[in-house]
Computed example of a mutant assay.
Amino acid sequence: MLTEEESPKDAEVIGVAGRSGQGGQQIYEFEYKVDRTRGGSAAFVAPRKLYLLNTAHSDKLESPIDAETIAMLEEVLHSFNAVPLT
């Protein structure tokens, strides 16, 4: 359980998207900010299992997250996919 000091003070959903993955499964992506952390999640269900990928990067006041790092995190998020079973 989080204490009041540990609880997030600010949260924002940046974007939500869906795309078709390999084998036609639907992949859902979420980008968000929680306090000074920017992150993303991708999720899909394949053969009765839930697969999740989470990314996060701390965005400090003295060194804010740069566009190159944001692009890299988005590339990782968008590359999340299932490998077709043979």
Rank of each mutant, 00 (worst) to 15 (best):
Leu85Thr: 08
Leu2Ser: 11
Ala67Cys: 00
Ala42Ile: 05
Asp10Asn: 13
Ala56Phe: 05
Pro47Met: 11
Leu53His: 04
Gly21Glu: 06
Ala42Trp: 03
Ala17Tyr: 10
Val34Leu: 05
Thr55Phe: 02
Leu85Phe: 10
Ser41Gly: 10
His78Ser: 12
Pro64Ala: 00
Ile70Val: 12
Tyr28Pro: 00
Arg19Phe: 01
Val16Trp: 09
Pro84Ile: 04
Lys33Val: 15
Leu85Asp: 10
Ala42Thr: 01
Thr55Ser: 07
Thr3Glu: 12
Leu52Met: 05
Phe44Val: 05
Pro64Trp: 01
Asp10Arg: 14
Lys9Ser: 13
Pro84Glu: 11
Val34Asp: 10
Asp66Ala: 01
Ala46Leu: 09
Phe44Glu: 06
Ser58His: 01
Ala67Tyr: 02
Gly15His: 06
Leu2Val: 09
Glu68Phe: 02
Glu4Asp: 15
Glu4Cys: 11
Pro47Val: 13
Val34Met: 12
Ala42Lys: 01
Ala67Arg: 10
Ile65Cys: 07
Pro47Cys: 09
Leu52Trp: 01
Leu73Thr: 00
Lys33Pro: 09
Ala46Glu: 15
Lys33Leu: 08
Ser63Pro: 00
Asp59Leu: 09
Leu77His: 02
Thr3Ser: 15
Met72Arg: 04
His78Gln: 12
Lys60Met: 04
Phe30Arg: 14
Val34Tyr: 09
Val13Asn: 14
Gly21Val: 07
Glu4His: 14
Lys33Asn: 11
Leu61Gly: 13
Gly39Phe: 03
Ala43Leu: 11
Pro64Val: 00
Ile27Asp: 02
Ala71Thr: 01
Ala42Phe: 06
Lys60Thr: 07
Glu5Ala: 15
Tyr28Glu: 10
Ser7Cys: 12
Ser7Tyr: 10
Lys33His: 10
Glu74Gly: 09
Pro47His: 12
Tyr32Asp: 04
Pro84Gln: 01
Gly21Phe: 04
Thr55Gly: 09
Lys9Glu: 11
Val45Cys: 06
Ile14Gly: 04
Ala17Phe: 11
Leu2Trp: 12
Val13Ala: 12
Leu52His: 07
Val13Ile: 15
Ala67Met: 02
